Simulated scan of single mutants.
Amino acid sequence: MNQTPHILDELENDALTELVNIGVSRAAVSLRKMVGNQVTLSVPSVEVVGRKLAATLIQERESDELVAVRQDFSGAFNGRALLIFPESNSLELVRAVTQDELSRTEMVDIEEEALAETGNVVLNGCLATMANILQRPLTMSLPQVLRGDGQILFELAEKHDDDGVVLFLYINFAISGRDIRGYIAMLMDLPSLQSLKELIGEFIARVVGTDGGDAH
């Protein structure tokens, strides 16, 4: 079961899922411009779990090495965003981004750059949209490409891992029939998650006020 308390109630979780879906939809539009084909990104579920459980969830789903694009964010709430792929998907993603115009050798040469740019488009698009809806600015760092397993990506060796939580999203990627799937994880400590919870509460209040009590 979850190693953290239920930080978000059902309404807050639904609102956060809606925010993430809007953010990911915007990111999908930007990614479509890069790959020149239809892109579908969907977020079936949003879970808040401890870092250890998040690492376990990824390892249960993925037996091979992982590639992640990492960007730190700061503002009304702080944390780190990761776009995570099975390593076996990474060249397929580069192939999509370069629209099948490069040889395998050329793709390997630009893989890191292409992954970083893709991660930047998805993570920046998603988080910037969420920040705009929550009416708070966020600053994003430059993207960095990491490789390893869930333990490495979530830095479980760090001494303060117990108070770290992970906002864990499983994203279904579909790029013109290509077999590409990924995850987004947002790592935040409890104070940052509390700040996000308060902003979500303000967002819900605005929606309820606008819709006359209907919080859809």
Rank of each mutant, 00 (worst) to 15 (best):
A174P: 00
L134Q: 12
E62D: 04
G125M: 04
I180Q: 01
G148I: 04
G213K: 07
S25C: 02
Q59D: 08
I58L: 14
D149I: 03
E47Q: 09
E92Q: 07
D100E: 13
K197G: 01
F168G: 03
N13W: 07
D211M: 13
A157P: 03
L19R: 09
I180F: 05
E198I: 05
V122N: 10
H160D: 08
L142D: 04
A68H: 08
D214L: 14
R61G: 01
S74Q: 13
P137V: 01
V20Y: 04
V49Q: 07
L11E: 06
M140Y: 09
Y183S: 12
N37A: 09
R61H: 13
P44R: 11
E65P: 00
Q71N: 01
R70L: 11
V165C: 05
F203R: 12
V69I: 15
I133D: 10
D64K: 09
F85M: 03
I200L: 10
L193R: 09
R70D: 11
Q71P: 00
G79F: 10
D189E: 14
N21T: 13
A27H: 09
L187M: 12
G79Q: 07
E158A: 10
L169G: 04
L156H: 15
I180L: 10
R104G: 00
D100F: 10
R80A: 02
M130W: 06
S25L: 11
V29F: 05
M186A: 00
T210R: 11
V165G: 07
M107W: 08
R206W: 04
L8G: 01
M107F: 08
A174R: 09
V166K: 04
G182Y: 08
V122S: 12
R206P: 00
S103A: 05
Q38Y: 13
L193P: 00
E101T: 09
L66W: 06
R206F: 02
I7Q: 05
V48I: 14
I133K: 15
D214A: 13
E18F: 14
V39Q: 06
L31C: 06
P137N: 05
A68V: 06
E112Y: 00
M186C: 07
P44Y: 03
K52H: 14
S63D: 07
A96N: 03
V20S: 08
L196I: 05
Y170R: 15
D161V: 08
K52Y: 14
V145M: 09
G182R: 13
T56V: 10
L153S: 04
Q151W: 15
A28F: 06
G23E: 06
E106M: 08
E112L: 00
G79P: 10
L169S: 02
I200T: 11
E12Y: 02
S176H: 05
E202V: 04
R51V: 15
L142H: 03
M188P: 00
F77C: 09
E158Q: 13
K33Q: 06
G150R: 05
